[in-house]
Design a protein around this nucleic acid. Structure first.
Length: 839
RNA sequence: GCGAAAGUGGCGGAACUGGCAGACGCGCCGGACUUAGGAUCCGGUGGGGCAACCCAUGAGGGUUCGAAUCCCUCCUUUCGCACCA
């Protein structure tokens, strides 16, 4: 290696990357004995090249993995590819490259980039979702869910992205737009496969409380997404079915969280898609009632409703009287049933009671159509309700028959208890979360293992016939629905049940299916007989640290929790929560915004590696901001990190020969020498500080700062070199090498080796701080008078209050501030501070 | 609109449990070495004041011997949800 770091980094980084591979530094045992640590980063989509967001994500994970390995844990730190998905298919449509070829090429490129960055992955465990040996287990899980009634087929209105030409799950619609391509999402009626995530809604919600290692923010987003609400289902008997769909004698069931307001219900509203209106949906041909025409018109208008339910702004409330009349079971009153655009079929029963006096939306609607508004809740604090607005808070009931005078909470309980035995109402818990639609009308995904038969219906593909392979050489045009439907050799099969003619399902699975369980596969990646060995997974799980972006807070991170619970119920895993600790790293910005091609503000990791090396690139991403905050890319900051490594190099490498020959100091060596003692204290304090920063606080920027301080101190020490200093320099140098390992592993290794150590630093034990050196034998205590700093005293840490106060009075400056005043009290925080309160 | 998080030098950030505000780095200023420096090294760097000292963590109030940290009100920014009955 050259004396100049600038000329050495490329060579030495490659040298150590080869060495790590040869020595299998990152290899995890099949079954960990002793303390295990599963360190995981979200697997990338192989889009072509790494971006800085990946580098940051993986630098964080690798720092922790390397640290834990040196701390003696058996570390599982794997990497793989989320390799099914739309971009591969779009590339095929655009350039004619088969998705497999495009994907494998990208995996090769990006894998090379990851190796060049020196991340310590156990590559023997690499997985890729698009390979049959992986996706066959998607199919297997799907069939298991089908057996348990957790996968089902249903026709319903779903989110449709016209640009991606496929269905999207609710979680994949962000502000009315496609999460991938950002085009406006419409609605479409389709026959789809759904996973019954709602069966676990209660558990998914309740267990959020126990995820102490997750950021509060993510738990909150999930809680809101699941949207648990307690309320009641109430049946309103239909007394007049004059309208088209309903017959008298039936009931209209509504969901409400405000049963206490029911006596203020002046009408009901059903969603335009509600079954009550079934008969009116057909083109109006003179059904009964004057309103039929208006109702028909309305439903036609709503039916063709702007594909873009996107409505960043909600449309104006719009509705019509259906002619149906129902009776309020609580006061016997007959009220009209309307239908309107603001009631959603997907939520609750698709029908509500409208209480305009106590609900903003109902209020707005009643105003517009001149419907009655009746106050039944008075503010608990007294006073009169404000006119011109709905009073939505809880209060005291009025005009509610026997319930008048009760507080809202008691009233809800009492009203429910009274009506339940009569079958008029029952308490329920409702969720906003909907079942997960997984059918995608695309090619590049896992085929859904179902065969349709006219005789037998939807028949699961038998286990023995898995995997259902994706056919190769499919012509992809982006036109005409599911590409697989065009492939006769794929579609046409025998029914496994009756051997009659059948057709394969031609939709593929949402790729979030792939990533919902991949981390179990890492535990046992080559198992051909099962998705993984439960005993092996049990040994590694739960994941000790999962690092990734916040973008998946309500998608991947909720789906994978759902899977964990299903897998638990299948007896494959013991714990329904897969991730113990979650770290959501911030984005990498340039000029205040996320890097993107369209903004032209991309920093290419390869350019950085070429110019500064992998160590500097990693170091900067860790140093520039705490992991969970956004990071502003600043090349001058990168150069600062490069300079730091240069200084480390210049300090230690020219002395390497001498230091290699020197012995390390004995435990108490240097105590009598102020310079040496100061250096040793700094060394051990740095060990102590970095160990807690990474291990307990997961701070990665402050350790880098601490290393810079250690370098400054060591440099200072080396400047006034004295004979016999070498052992102390050696201790500092070797410690620096080890402490650098999580942050700049290549330089770490080269120094470690040059200073005469055997084996890789990556496999060395993390240094232990000697408490005797961490402790200062003299501390500087700030002395305050009335909370203002007036002096500092150098004292032994064990000094008593009386003694330090006596010394403080002797201090000229402090004494000046005590002059002529009466000391009221003194506060001494041992080792920290002295405050003298006067007058 | 509802919910959450965050506001600290010119900049990124530090300050662990309420105890010296501004660690570390960038930038900037000055100096040394140099034909030269955008290399390296040394020194300085929150504001005011020659000084003692005063002011300072978005604004205002409070608790406390002591607040960037805890409480209240407000402002700003970012994020999430957005007719969920």
């Amino acid at each position: 290696m050259s004396a100049d770091y600038r000329d050495s980094f490329d060579l030495l980084e490659r040298k150590w990357q080869a060495r790590w591979e040869r020595d299998r530094v990152a290899k995890a045992p099949r079954l960990p004995g002793g303390r295990e640590f599963y360190c995981l980063e979200m697997l990338p989509y192989p889009s072509g090249r790494l971006h800085m967001g990946h580098v940051r994500n993986y630098a964080i994970g690798d720092a922790v993995a390397r640290f834990q390995r040196m701390r003696g844990a058996r570390v599982l730190h794997p990497m793989g590819w989320d390799s099914f998905g739309l971009p591969a298919e779009n590339a095929a449509i655009k350039h004619g490259t088969p998705p497999t070829v495009w994907t494998e090429k990208n995996i090769a490129t990006m894998g090379e980039q990851l190796r060049r960055l020196g991340f310590s992955y156990d590559w023997a465990r690499e997985i890729a979702a698009h390979r049959p040996e992986y996706y066959r287990w998607n199919q297997w899980f799907f069939l298991k869910m089908l057996e348990r009634g957790l996968a089902y087929r249903s026709r319903r209105a779903v989110n449709w992205c016209g640009s991606c030409r496929t269905v999207l799950a609710n979680e994949q619609v962000e502000q009315g737009r496609c999460w991938r391509c950002e085009s406006v999402v419409g609605r479409k009626e389709l026959e789809q496969w759904f996973l019954k995530i709602t069966a676990y809604a209660g558990e998914l919600d309740a267990e959020l409380d126990r995820l102490a290692g997750w950021p509060e923010r993510v738990r909150l987003m999930q809680r809101n997404w699941i949207g648990r609400s307690e309320g009641a289902l109430v049946r309103f008997p239909i007394v007049d079915g004059a309208g088209p769909g309903a017959a008298a004698g039936g009931t209209l069931e509504i969901f409400t969280t405000r049963l206490d307001t029911i006596c203020g219900a002046t009408f009901c509203v059903v969603a335009p898609e509600h079954p009550l209106l079934e008969g009116a949906r057909a083109p109006a041909t003179g059904s009964a009632g004057a309103s039929a025409g208006a109702l028909g018109d309305f439903l036609r208008r709503i039916g063709g409703r702007d594909v873009s339910r996107a409505g960043v702004e909600a449309e104006e409330k719009d509705g019509v009287d259906t002619g149906v009349r129902v009776r309020n079971p609580y006061n016997g009153e007959t009220i009209p049933v309307w239908t309107a655009n603001f009631v959603l079929m997907e939520y609750g029963t698709g029908a509500i009671m409208a209480v305009p006096a106590h609900d903003e939306r109902d209020f707005e609607f009643a105003r517009k159509y001149g419907l009655p508004i009746r106050t039944v809740i008075l503010p608990a604090a007294g006073g009169t309700p404000i006119a011109g607005a709905a009073m939505i808070e809880d209060g005291i009931l009025t005009a509610s028959g026997p319930y008048s005078g009760l507080a809202s909470g008691e009233a809800r309980r009492a009203m429910l208890a009274d009506a339940e035995p009569r079958g008029e109402a029952r308490g329920v818990v409702n969720y906003r979360l909907l079942d997960w639609g997984i059918s995608r009308q695309r090619y590049w995904g896992t085929p859904i293992p179902i065969i349709y038969c006219d005789q037998c219906g939807a028949v699961p593909v038998p286990d023995a016939d898995l995997p259902v392979l994706l056919p190769e050489s499919v012509s992809l045009t982006g036109e005409g629905g599911s590409p697989l439907a065009q492939v006769a050799s794929f579609v046409e099969v025998r029914c496994p049940r009756c051997q009659g003619p059948g057709r394969r399902e031609t939709d593929t699975m949402d790729t979030f299916f792939d990533s919902s369980w991949y981390f179990y596969r890492y535990c046992d990646p080559r198992n051909g007989a099962a998705p993984f060995d439960p005993a092996v997974a049990a040994a590694w799980f739960p994941i000790d640290l999962y690092v990734g972006g916040i973008t998946h807070a309500t998608m991947h991170l909720i789906y994978c929790r759902f899977f964990a619970k299903v897998l638990r119920d299948l007896g494959l895993v013991g714990n329904g929560e897969p991730v113990a600790n979650l770290l959501c790293q911030g984005m990498v910005l340039k000029g205040g915004t996320a890097m993107s091609k369209s903004k032209g503000n991309i920093v290419d990791p390869d350019d950085m590696i070429r110019k500064y090396g992998a160590d500097t690139t990693r170091l900067f991403t860790l140093f520039a901001a705490p992991p969970e905050k956004d990071l502003e890319w600043n090349e001058q900051g990168v150069e600062g990190c490069f300079r730091f490594l240069e200084r480390v190099w210049r300090l230690l490498m020219p002395r390497a020969g001498a230091l290699a020959a020197a012995a390390l100091p004995e435990a108490r060596d240097g105590s009598g020498d102020a310079r040496r003692a100061a250096l040793r204290r700094k060394v051990h304090q740095t060990i102590d500080r970095i160990t807690t920063d990474i291990g307990r606080r997961l701070h990665l920027n402050t350790p880098v700062a601490a290393l810079m301080e250690l370098l400054n101190a060591t440099q200072e020490f080396a400047k006034d070199a004295a004979p016999g200093d070498d052992p102390y320099l050696k201790e500092a140098g070797l410690t620096m090498a080890l402490l650098l390992q999580p942050f700049a592993p290549h330089v770490s290794e080269e120094i470690w080796e040059s200073l005469g150590s055997e084996g890789c630093a990556a496999l060395a034990a993390w240094p232990a701080a000697d408490p005797a050196w961490v402790r200062e034998d003299e501390v500087e205590i700030p002395v305050q008078v009335n909370g203002r700093l007036r002096g500092r005293l150098r004292v032994p840490p064990s000094i008593g209050e009386e003694e330090i106060v006596r010394r403080a009075r002797d201090d000229g400056r402090v004494a000046a501030h005590l002059e002529g005043r009466i000391v009221r009290k003194t506060i001494y925080v041992p080792g920290k501070l002295l405050n003298i309160v006067v007058q």
